[in-house]
């Protein structure tokens, strides 16, 4: 297995002087190809910021980071990853098919190729039949699924997902978790996944990165070796509960020294 993301002593401060926010401090993290890594931690601990640094949407102020062996910028220019934002961020004037087509158009694919990929990815997220609908005609969960199909449409090797299911209800969330897991098992993409939910992190991940705030740092990295076959009711097994408990402890310890 090869290392895909390698961060050493990563540091990021927003602004200067009085109003400066130390968002990331001394982040060491190495992610291998095919891993599913979750970032979990209290609000404001820098999960989004770390993901954005990997995506070259934010420049670190210290330390080094490489993505696919090159700088995040080069990786971005090579379209190495698909990014799923916390909100679906669909373009309201494009139909669902049109939204999924967006990256394909930007990348200059032929119409036939685009149509074939749109169909394939809409099926993958169970949205077949909604091609011609506009985003506002879909529920929040369906919109989020469309945004995942959009990120998958150009078949990047890496998926960066920022709380993609944060705004959804438990049932829909469970369902999407299962689908995402299936997709990951099929494609063996590298996934970096931000979440607030402990069960979600344990259910999906091969490794869980527990972060603590002010400044945002990595408190603990927990292995999550539940194997590849994970039905939903794995969440009631002792092993699952034990890992969940360790994540919870980690979060608590990471939190305690600040107040």
């Amino acid at each position: 297995m090869s290392v895909v993301i390698e961060a050493k002593g990563l540091d990021l401060t927003f602004g200067t002087g009085e109003g400066a926010v130390h968002a990331l401090a001394d982040i060491d993290l190495s992610i291998e190809s095919g891993e599913f890594v979750s970032l979990i931690g209290p609000s404001g601990c820098g999960k989004t910021t770390l993901l954005r640094v990997i995506a070259d949407l934010e420049k670190p102020t210290g330390g080094t980071i490489s993505v696919n062996g090159v700088s995040p910028e080069e990786a971005r220019l090579a379209r190495a990853y698909g990014y799923v934002f916390q909100a679906a961020a669909l373009y309201p004037w494009r139909t669902i098919a049109g939204n999924i087509s967006l990256p394909l158009e930007v990348m200059g694919m032929s119409k036939a190729e685009r149509q074939q990929r749109i169909a394939k990815n809409m099926e993958l997220v169970n949205l077949t039949g909604f091609e011609k609908k506009f985003p506002w005609q879909l529920s929040g969960g369906m919109q989020q699924r469309a945004s995942i199909a959009r990120a998958l449409s150009f078949d990047p090797d890496m998926l960066l997902m920022d709380e993609p299911f944060g705004a959804l209800d438990e049932i829909v969330r469970d369902h999407l978790n299962e689908q995402l897991l299936k997709l990951w098992a099929q494609t063996k993409k590298t996934v970096v996944f931000v979440t607030h939910s402990i069960p979600e992190a344990v259910f999906l991940s091969t490794r869980i990165v527990v972060m603590s705030p002010r400044p945002g740092r990595i408190h603990e990295v927990i292995d999550c070796d539940l194997g590849d076959d994970r039905p939903l009711d794995i969440r009631e097994t002792p092993k699952f509960l034990e890992i969940a408990h360790r994540v919870r402890e980690g979060l608590r310890l990471g939190h305690s020294y600040e107040d």
Binding site: A55, L57, R76, L77, R79, G82, A89, Y91
Partner: peptide, 9 residues
């Protein structure tokens, strides 16, 4: 929406 376009280079 702008960041999204950026990720597509």
């Amino acid at each position: 929406h702008l960041d999204l376009m950026r990720t597509y280079n």
